[in-house]
Amino acid sequence: MNGFKIIVLAKQVPDTRNVGKDAMKADGTVNRGALPAIFNPEDLNALEIALRIKDRYPGTTVTVLSMGPGRAAEIIREALYRGADHGVLLTDRKFAGSDTLATSYALSMAIRKMSPYHLIVAGRQAIDGDTAQVGPQVAEKLGLPQVTYAEEVLSVDEQSITIKRRLERGVEVVKAPLPTVITVHSSAPDCRPRNAKYLMKFKHARTITELQDSSEDYIELYKDRPYLDIKEWSVADVEADSDWLGLSGSPTKVKKIENVVFTAKESKILNDSNDDISGLMKELINNHTLG
């Protein structure tokens, strides 16, 4: 076995888990621009699953594929620092406004361009939407089986992979033929940290756009070190049909967005004094709220 070719799907997301005071506008709505952009957490679990296969089978290569704006190259570099080998950024204005179906179509076209491959590994869902749809939709578009909610790869050989899945109230072990699409649950092991050696190696990894925008001259450096090239692919590069992309190519439309506004109800304010709490407990017992 000369190792596996693994593609990891990763997304840069706004950190919606930590909407702090800085991210709130005066009218109480969220200033999305103020949220830090992070590596989607479950995509890091997915990367770790891929890297563990690489640890076990020398010759394995891990390529990170991300779709997003130019700055999403940041998470590709992050993946390289942790042990991925290559990165591809799928970026084009025509992708803007894509729903999950249009996104999975675009990703599937990029994956086709990367074939042959053995495994596609993605996080179960991204925290900005929590939909968990893109993994299964990519699998369907490629005509591949899918194993969702994966927690651990138990074994893998040239023909098949055996995976432990996390269900609502238990676990299941399934065997799938290769190639297959795996989506990884947050109960899988955390991703390893950056490796100092890889950090040095990939510190100057850039997309072509980043190179052009940079004031520094890396041309000579790149001639000697082709691995520093983060590939940048457009709609045309992956031969995708624009009719299936972006806002117009998305079956779902957003009809309305409402910012969450609290309607306050009258609340009795108590403090933690003995009198207040004793009074409350008496009241709840007397009105039979408590048995």
Partner: peptide, 26 residues
Amino acid sequence: RIADYTIVGDVADVIPKMIQYYKENS
């Protein structure tokens, strides 16, 4: 804002008191 009662205090202080006063009054 959607609470009927708001107890301003630390959980670690308030809950033991709730237990105590529930036991005393039930």
